[in-house]
Amino acid sequence: MVLLSLLAACKKENVEPVAEPLTLECDLVAKGESLTLEDRGAGVDYIASCVVNVRGDLTLAPGVVIQFASDAGLRIYEDGSIQAAGTEEKPIVLTGEDQLPGAWKGVISYSADVKNELRHCTIEYAGGGAFNSNGNEAALILWSGTKLRMSDCTITGSAAYGIDATYSNYDVTIDNTTITQCEMPMYISAPIAGHISGGNFTGNATDAIRVLGSKGGHRLVEDQTWKALSAPYRVSAEGDDLQLGAATLTLEPGVTIEFENGTGIQIGESDASSLVAVGSVIAPITFTGVNKVAGSWGGLEFRFTKSPQNRIQNAVIEYAGSAKWPGAIYMWSNPALSVTNTTFRHIGTCVFYDAPKPNYNPGSQTQNPNLGYDSITTESVGGTYCYGG
């Protein structure tokens, strides 16, 4: 009997109480203050029933799980920051009370703090309604000027975009991140596209990284390389064309860029602007339309640039040549360009369209002396070389 009593006492002492989730206050961190949320080992460690506002420094420890109710979310203000550095063994999870797409709003950041980091984090079941007066909807919304380092994260189950970053002046990198089971992986300002490295962006309703064109200050003004990702880039008609300023855009072999109706790429007004699109035989670069109809998008417009870097090789250009730019490749003022081993198909007008020269006289115009092309294949095109009139 004594032995049984001792065993019973030991058993009671070894039973740890189950930690109940704590409810987060709506104004969680005040300006100038800092707060660390620890992993409480409770399964769900914290519950948010409102939009949680952060105006100071918020740190989420590895293993933290926060559950958000309907219409709840996390807002990082200009004076705030978020440091959510999980580990592979103990990721940080932001989830919804209802395990369904759109169960909560998501995360929005206005912060330009260099400490901002999301690493080994999961954001799931968000995108459930507009988070601001502009109507942005996504699991993660980044306001103009945001700084963020994001790596080894997963966004899944968003009822809208995985990431919406359609403003300007960003300092954002996205590395080895998976976005799946969302409406679309991302809608981003064009300068962000060159800061995406690796990851998986498949399994969504639409597998495409939507890129806002050049309206509202989204033109490229710094050299960039766009990597071949698991989903194509898609130039959005909402932002008009993708424009290159004094910058070189380099496309890796295997890159695919889709274009919504009427859009295209403008390769700038100076010799400092250039497009380097050199694919390989097994990994060509593809420029195509979202709508697979001849002339559904504009094309590639080269203006003035005499950069020797302008080069298209081992590429496919298809469904271009809308009335906007009467040619898959539109040339103004004898730009420098080399095109080799490239297939043009289903072009609404011509492959090359040479815009009228100053003092244009019909019948006297000659081909652009700075254009070199070889091993061109055509299929269903209106002509190879056309002159402006």
Rank of each mutant, 00 (worst) to 15 (best):
N176W: 02
S364Q: 12
A159L: 13
Q313Y: 11
K11E: 12
S151P: 01
F259H: 03
D207Q: 09
N370K: 10
Q367C: 02
P21W: 06
F352C: 03
Y77L: 15
D271F: 13
P21F: 07
K115R: 15
L28V: 00
E16M: 09
L242M: 04
D164Q: 06
M150G: 00
G102N: 08
R40G: 05
P21R: 05
A165K: 02
S168Y: 14
T36H: 09
R219K: 13
T286R: 15
L6C: 12
T366L: 14
P358K: 09
L22I: 00
L142N: 02
N361E: 14
V235T: 02
E301Q: 06
P17H: 10
D152W: 05
V65R: 14
W325C: 02
G203S: 11
G80Q: 07
N116H: 12
T95G: 05
T288E: 08
N370H: 15
C121R: 05
D71K: 13
S70M: 08
G63P: 08
W226V: 04
G245I: 02
F352I: 01
K90P: 01
G198H: 06
L37T: 00
A320R: 00
A48P: 06
N134T: 00
A159H: 05
N204L: 05
C10Q: 12
G199E: 01
E222Q: 15
I76M: 10
R311S: 10
A112D: 14
Y373P: 08
D79W: 04
V18K: 14
T248K: 13
G299N: 01
L22T: 01
R40I: 04
E183S: 14
T342W: 01
D27L: 06
Y330N: 11
T343I: 05
N136D: 12
A228V: 06
S34H: 09
K292D: 05
L242F: 11
V52D: 01
L74S: 07
R311I: 08
S296D: 14
G80M: 06
A61E: 15
R149Q: 11
G383P: 04
G203T: 06
R219V: 06
V339A: 10
R219N: 12
V281T: 14
T166I: 13
Y360G: 00
K31H: 04
G216D: 14
G128Y: 09
Y385G: 02
N310P: 10
G63F: 07
Q99K: 14
C153Y: 07
G268C: 11
G73W: 00
T286N: 10
T166V: 13
L242E: 01
L100P: 00
E222D: 14
L229C: 01
E33T: 15
W297N: 04
G198N: 08
Q83W: 09
E20P: 02
P191T: 09
A85P: 04
A9C: 11
T305R: 02
